[in-house]
Amino acid sequence: MTGSSGEFLAALSALSRRGAVEVVVGARAGGAAVGTLVADVFAPAEREVGLRWERDEWSVAQEHAATVIAELALSAVSQDGHDRVHGRLVAACVSGEWHAFPVRLVAESLRDLGWSVTCLGGSVPADQLEGFLREHRPDAVLLSATLAASLPGALESVAAARRAGVPAVLGGAAADAYPAAAAAVGAHAAPSDVLAVHDLLERLVGSPPLPEPPGAQAQQRCRDLHSERPALVDALGGAASALPAAAGSLLAPLVDTLAAAALLGDTAPLDDFTDWLTGVVRVRGGDPAAVDALVQALRREAAPLVPELGELATAGVRRG
């Protein structure tokens, strides 16, 4: 698959829909399973696409164009081809998570393994998810959170699934990076390997959802910060003015990442986001010290709202 992966990335770089489709259709004709293509071709290419934006090599427009081509190529190898033998699933991004391609990759891998999967795409509001689950009664719902900033949304999405009586499985890069995340929101943790996800889902068929998780105070802290996000973003405007334009759009995710840290009782999400944002600023010619000032401003503004979070915010400060 190494050759196919390089050819696929080259096609995305050239914005060649035909080239990308030919690579994966050819590999599929050669016997590659969809799950193999996802693991060895689609996922590595999509990670590189994101890194090219992060390194300021590609614009947002280029990144989006490449992702659309990758989605079209995925559709070309994902036609239904056998009877369903396992169960019915719904797959969706949690509320506030717009990176929809990762959940599609998992959905198509599971479809190829014999599951009936309805994929709802990016950022499904929790109340809408609940209504859909009540109407369609799947055996489980797969929820994806790529960013730690999406964990406040995951808390609400899993609660919606619980009210609908459907077991929830939380996966995605954020769930992988912070192993406590699934338990904190009351979901089963998705293994990183799709075959292990398949095995977990087979065990969940016919099972009730997990009970509401402990940690009511941490959940309330998270919800308080998330609900006050517009006011906090406005208050951070002065500190954000020193950042490059591309970084200035990341204030809302910064606040939600602090909310995720509150939910987990762990500074790691905020630390990681601060380090990542520092890199984004540096590569665009900005002053990394501006990120330090921004996080300190967030600490000051958030402390009156949720005083217990002062230490978390302080721990998140990184020196450039």
Rank of each mutant, 00 (worst) to 15 (best):
L298I: 09
P230H: 03
A145E: 03
A303E: 15
T118R: 15
E130M: 03
H198C: 03
L309H: 01
D56P: 06
A216K: 11
V141I: 05
L195H: 15
T118H: 07
D272C: 02
A242C: 03
P288Y: 11
A261W: 06
D40M: 11
A10I: 01
G186S: 13
P214Q: 10
Q220Y: 01
A20G: 08
F101Q: 00
G285I: 12
V169D: 11
S75H: 11
A242T: 09
G248A: 06
V94Q: 04
S13E: 15
G237C: 04
L105H: 03
A182Q: 12
F8K: 02
A177Q: 11
H226Q: 13
G286V: 12
E228R: 14
G215F: 13
E54I: 05
S144T: 01
H226W: 11
P102W: 08
L143Y: 06
C93Y: 04
A159F: 05
H136V: 08
V169L: 14
E54Y: 15
L232A: 08
F273S: 00
E130L: 01
P211A: 11
P214C: 11
A303V: 14
D224H: 06
A76G: 00
E308Q: 14
R318T: 10
L147F: 13
F132H: 15
L9M: 14
D40T: 13
R134L: 14
P179C: 09
L129M: 01
A302C: 10
S227T: 10
A239M: 07
A218V: 09
A140R: 09
A76T: 01
A32T: 08
E46D: 00
Q62A: 14
S109E: 01
V158F: 05
A252N: 00
A247N: 06
L264T: 02
G153C: 12
L195R: 15
G172T: 00
R84F: 10
L251G: 02
R299G: 15
L72E: 14
A73G: 09
S95V: 04
L201W: 06
A297F: 05
V205W: 08
V41P: 08
A107G: 05
V205M: 06
L89Y: 09
L9Q: 09
P213H: 13
V34E: 06
R17D: 11
